[in-house]
Amino acid sequence: MNAKDVIEKYYESANAGDWNTWLSLFDKNIVMDEQLAGHVEGISILEGAIGGIERGYSKFQNNPQHIVINGDEACVVSHISAANASGVPIEANVANYFRFKDGKIAYMANFHDTRPFDPFVNQSLG
């Protein structure tokens, strides 16, 4: 897949809750700087995070507003409309930076205000 295809599939699969397809877009040695989770290395960390995403969000939509692709790099400005497990709404503007290697996401970083995610981060899923 080229960068455009990967970007389209990334948002399509995340919005559909198709986490297996979403995971397949990442290189097994992915390095990610994630605003809430911190520095992440390796696909196994992302695989382990899927359960928390599924339990922690009752709704999750990440809709691209502006996409710039330049060779093996891309930046996507998007808007997240989500809700935590009990339905408390989350609205946030986000910027994602991607670097690709051999048709996979090799590095990713996201940038956003963390306060809108308090309903997700501070919930008890006991």
Rank of each mutant, 00 (worst) to 15 (best):
D33V: 07
D33T: 10
E34W: 07
L36P: 00
L36W: 01
A37H: 10
G38E: 06
G38K: 02
G38Y: 01
H39I: 04
V40A: 01
V40C: 01
G42H: 05
G42Q: 02
I43C: 00
I43W: 01
S44L: 11
S44T: 12
I45D: 10
L46F: 12
G48H: 02
G48P: 02
I50Y: 03
I50G: 06
I50S: 03
G51A: 15
G51Q: 15
G52T: 03
G52E: 00
I53M: 14
R55P: 01
R55S: 13
G56C: 01
G56E: 00
Y57E: 00
Y57W: 10
S58W: 03
S58N: 02
S58Q: 03
K59W: 08
K59N: 14
K59S: 14
K59C: 09
F60R: 06
F60I: 09
Q61H: 13
N62E: 09
N63W: 05
P64Y: 01
Q65H: 02
H66T: 10
H66A: 11
I67V: 15
I67E: 07
I67C: 03
I67S: 03
V68H: 13
V68M: 11
I69T: 07
G71A: 06
D72N: 09
E73L: 09
E73N: 11
E73I: 11
A74V: 05
A74I: 03
A74R: 06
C75W: 15
V76P: 07
V77M: 14
V77A: 12
S78T: 04
I80P: 02
I80E: 05
S81A: 13
A82N: 02
N84S: 05
N84M: 01
N84E: 00
N84V: 03
A85S: 11
S86M: 04
G87A: 00
V88I: 11
V88T: 13
V88E: 14
E91R: 08
E91A: 10
A92Q: 08
A92K: 07
A92V: 08
V94E: 14
A95E: 00
N96R: 12
Y97C: 06
F98G: 00
F98C: 00
R99V: 13
R99L: 12
R99D: 10
R99N: 11
R99C: 12
F100H: 02
F100A: 04
K101V: 10
K101Q: 13
D102W: 04
G103Q: 01
K104E: 07
I105E: 03
I105G: 03
A106M: 10
A106F: 08
Y107E: 14
Y107H: 13
Y107K: 12
M108P: 06
A109C: 08
N110D: 12
F111K: 09
H112T: 13
H112N: 13
H112M: 15
H112W: 13
D113K: 05
D113V: 02
T114K: 10
R115V: 15
R115T: 15
R115H: 14
R115Q: 15
P116R: 04
P116M: 06
P116E: 08
P116D: 09
P116K: 05
F117C: 04
D118F: 14
D118K: 15
D118T: 15
P119M: 11
